[in-house]
């Protein structure tokens, strides 16, 4: 630009003309405008920083909330599957002690402690473990025997004290016995997919269990052991009728 007074070249930032020394009015105006722009720039910069900071804070909070919701969902899934986790944990523990469990069950089987076998399975929670599958039939037949024995004893108690166990009828107990008897026979059928479950000492144990059950039935119902053995070929209903008749 040119000096108003002497016409020489000036820069807009020059407050005074370097040649004539006169004040440059445009420099003041320019400075004012520059100050205003600077102020506006600073304010805008502050705004942008504040908003982006707010945005960052909000983003962090939303992220935290999203993560917590995801964690809550994951924990909820685990809670609904706590049984499966427990079974997996128990199965792992059982596998670690399976040799001990098998030895103790084998001892109970050798002693022909039919009730002892089933209570051992139940209390140790090993019945459904994959490492105890070879004892499936032993477990099932012993379980059926326990129910048979309990029903038989309740029936005997009812006969001695009719007011006792009034909520059970004789027919219900006999029907339960018949189902248990048939259930025990079912467990002796050879298992073509898992022959180890119905072979050797396990089969001997189950056959003795059956003979014992038939003897107890003969004794408590006043029938002969031959009649008791004939139950092997009877249906549940036929057994119920035979036992009911023997009670009359």
């Amino acid at each position: 630009m040119k000096c108003k007074h002497c016409g020489s070249n000036l820069n807009i930032e020059d407050k005074f003309c370097p040649y004539c020394g006169e004040p440059n009015p445009y420099a003041t105006l320019h400075q004012k405008e520059m100050d205003k722009y600077k102020k506006d720039y600073q304010a805008t910069k502050r705004d942008v920083l504040e908003q982006s900071s707010r945005f960052n804070r909000r983003t962090v909070k939303v992220t935290i909330i999203a993560i917590m919701v995801a964690l809550i969902a994951a924990v909820m899934v685990l809670i609904f599957n706590v049984d499966n986790i427990r079974y997996w944990k128990e199965d792992r523990d059982i596998k670690a002690h399976s040799a001990q469990y098998k030895a103790e069950i084998d001892q109970l089987m050798d002693d022909r402690d039919y009730l002892g076998v089933i209570y051992y399975f139940t209390e140790k929670h090993i019945a459904y473990s994959s490492s105890m599958e070879e004892y499936d039939n032993v477990y099932s037949s012993s379980q059926r025997y326990r129910m048979f024995y309990e029903n038989l004893m309740i029936l005997q108690s009812k006969k001695a004290f009719p007011d006792k166990y009034a909520y059970y009828t004789q027919s219900e107990l006999i029907e339960g016995l018949a189902k248990d008897i048939v259930g025990i026979y079912e467990e002796l059928k050879p298992n073509e997919y898992h022959p180890e479950r119905t072979e050797g000492e396990k089969m001997e144990y189950m056959e003795d269990l059956v003979a014992h059950m038939e003897t107890m039935t003969a004794g408590y119902f006043g029938i002969t052991t031959e009649e008791a053995r004939a139950m092997r070929n009877m249906t549940t209903s036929r057994i119920s009728v035979m036992l009911e008749d023997s009670c009359r």
Binding site: Q156, T215, M216, A218, G219, Y220, T224, T225, E226
Partner: peptide
């Protein structure tokens, strides 16, 4: 006793002598 009662009564009703003796 529950087992004694069962076996003794079954023995009383047994027709086969060998089985009776075992019971």
């Amino acid at each position: 006793e529950s087992l004694y009662v069962g076996y003794s009564k079954a023995a009383a009703n047994a027709t086969d002598e060998t089985e009776k003796a075992q019971l």
